[in-house]
């Protein structure tokens, strides 16, 4: 089972959820996952867009009451 690290970036204006994800994914092993919690609705698009460009993998996108949970697997 891959390990999963959660980053709570809810309410973060700067550096913001995607920058937090980029920093966090460097710290996990290939095959492990980062769950990013974001209250910015733009994250539901920005994060998958970046993940596709850099060829990691979106494992799950879930809209919760007041935020999104996006799980990304490091692929390289």
């Amino acid at each position: 089972m891959p390990e999963r690290k959660t980053v709570d970036a809810r309410g973060a204006f700067c550096p913001g959820p995607l920058m937090e994800l980029i920093a966090a994914i460097k710290l996990v092993e290939v095959g492990d996952e980062v769950e990013i919690l974001s209250s910015d609705k733009g994250s539901a698009k920005d994060i998958p867009d970046w993940v596709a460009k850099v060829k990691h993998e979106v494992v799950a996108v879930e809209e919760r009451d007041d935020h999104w949970s996006i799980v990304v697997k490091r692929m390289k």
Partner: peptide
């Protein structure tokens, strides 16, 4: 810049 705009602060 790492993300899809010129600065982290929108």
């Amino acid at each position: 810049y790492p993300i899809g705009r010129l600065h982290a602060l929108e």
